[in-house]
Design a protein around this nucleic acid. Sequence first.
RNA 1: CAAGCAGGCUGAACGACCGCGGGCAUGAGCCGAAAGGCUGUGCGUGAGGAAAGUCCGGGCUCCGCAGGGCAAGGAUAACGGGUAACGCCCGCCAGGGGUGACCCUCGGACAAGUGCAACAGAGAGAUACCGCCCCGGCGCAGCUGCGCCCGGGGUAAGGGUGGAAAGGCGAGGUAAGAGCUCACCCGCCGCGUGGAGACACGUCGGCGCUGUAAACUCUAUCCGGAGCAACGCCGUGGAGGAACAGUGAGGUCGGCCCGACCGUUCCGGGGAGGCGGCUUGAGCCUGUCAGCAAUGGCAGGCCACAGACAGAUGGUCGUUCAGGGAUCUUUCAAGGUCCCGGACAGAACCCGGCUUACAGGCCCGCUUGCGUU
RNA 2: ACCGGGAUUGUGUAAAGGUAGCACGCCGGACUCUGACUCCGUCUGUGAGGGUUCGAAUCCUUCUCCCGGUG
Length: 115
Amino acid sequence: MLFTDTLKKNYEFRRLYARGKSAVTPFLVVYARLARRETRRVGFTVSNKLGKAVVRNRVRRRLREIYRLHEAEFVPGAELVVVARGRAVGAQYRQLERAMLDACKRLGVWRPGTP
RNA sequence: CAAGCAGGCUGAACGACCGCGGGCAUGAGCCGAAAGGCUGUGCGUGAGGAAAGUCCGGGCUCCGCAGGGCAAGGAUAACGGGUAACGCCCGCCAGGGGUGACCCUCGGACAAGUGCAACAGAGAGAUACCGCCCCGGCGCAGCUGCGCCCGGGGUAAGGGUGGAAAGGCGAGGUAAGAGCUCACCCGCCGCGUGGAGACACGUCGGCGCUGUAAACUCUAUCCGGAGCAACGCCGUGGAGGAACAGUGAGGUCGGCCCGACCGUUCCGGGGAGGCGGCUUGAGCCUGUCAGCAAUGGCAGGCCACAGACAGAUGGUCGUUCAGGGAUCUUUCAAGGUCCCGGACAGAACCCGGCUUACAGGCCCGCUUGCGUU
RNA sequence: ACCGGGAUUGUGUAAAGGUAGCACGCCGGACUCUGACUCCGUCUGUGAGGGUUCGAAUCCUUCUCCCGGUG
């Protein structure tokens, strides 16, 4: 993913939970903040309460694919953490996409149509 | 043809666009003194039969340990073989089930000792409640019989209880009975024959012993502990130690002055982090030999058979192939159209098993029944 | 990765292999003009499958779910 790093360390996640703003939908929660840097950073969390390994992997792959297809429309310097909720397991791809973009728009990190 | 039994294999295919991890190459670009790194490009590659549960057994690494024995704790349990090893696998024995193919069984010892066996029942490792029989006493009738809220003794045949009542059944025997005796049968011990063995068969002899060890226990065999977050290497800062230097120089902040702050180098342990461990192995394929088989020997070939570390196979679709439903044509078979729609499930150090989950499809062998020749 | 604990009626909990109780609650009845309190009575259960045993909540085994610990 061009101009994007993944969040890896646990303290990076905890910093967003503590300092970032959040937006909630029935399918997922997005935490976000803006950093003074050119690259965007993103992390995905799928708890083991959501299901078995196959189910969790599928949810995470779809969330990552949604981000990848809309990557250029995100604000540079954004840091995101996307946390899947229980309803995301049986959701359609289009439902997840709409939920994630809507949450990011409310947080001001997504500007549609301005790559 | 129908019903069934057992074993093995497989785990939808092809394509379009956009993406991901690892490897190799690179006379491409950028960074770097270099080693190399990042990006790009090209080639090839990338989940399973259970990858799962983590229930056993190993490899590997570190810790402990002279060698041996005993105790504690844990595990296993007919017999023979296979294996690196196993609690696994194969064969076989015994018992049980099925017409049969075949299937099931935590299958040592209660005849070493201890414990437990509720309720019911007279009595649960022995017992005398009813009953039966004998003797005595009393009463009635009369030379023997009948009766008793009577006493003493014998008995385990009959009654009923129980999961289980002390071998079974028949005959003899007896006052009534009893393996008390005998024939047949059953079980255990011993002996003989066969077998590698568990065992099987025979019976001359002895004995008749309840069940329970997934109760304590006994017998035989095995087991040091921990786990790749093991372990090894590198290791900014901070803290510690040593050596050296000492009021001027140097460094940081700052456009500059003023001003403010700061000793330098080395050492060992090592938190964060990084790298290795990491994928070639009790390996896979083919043939052949030994064996009923599990499996093993030999010969040839192969490296295609993942190596991530917030963790790579996805997203959006199309066509076909299975499958299901509705409807139409039709006597049925079969065909057309539309819709739905793809089992269980995702490697995390690696192997051998076990257990559990699973839509379907295919192959081989066998049994029983029916029909035809 | 390694390792514990647990599951009993709607809830909380007992039960040495031998009839599964107790408290609260629910429901019904009594008391009351009605309700509350009180009293009486009833219903409801061993997480699932298999095994050992004459007999299993208890013993053995395979699963399911929940809670927790260490690094």
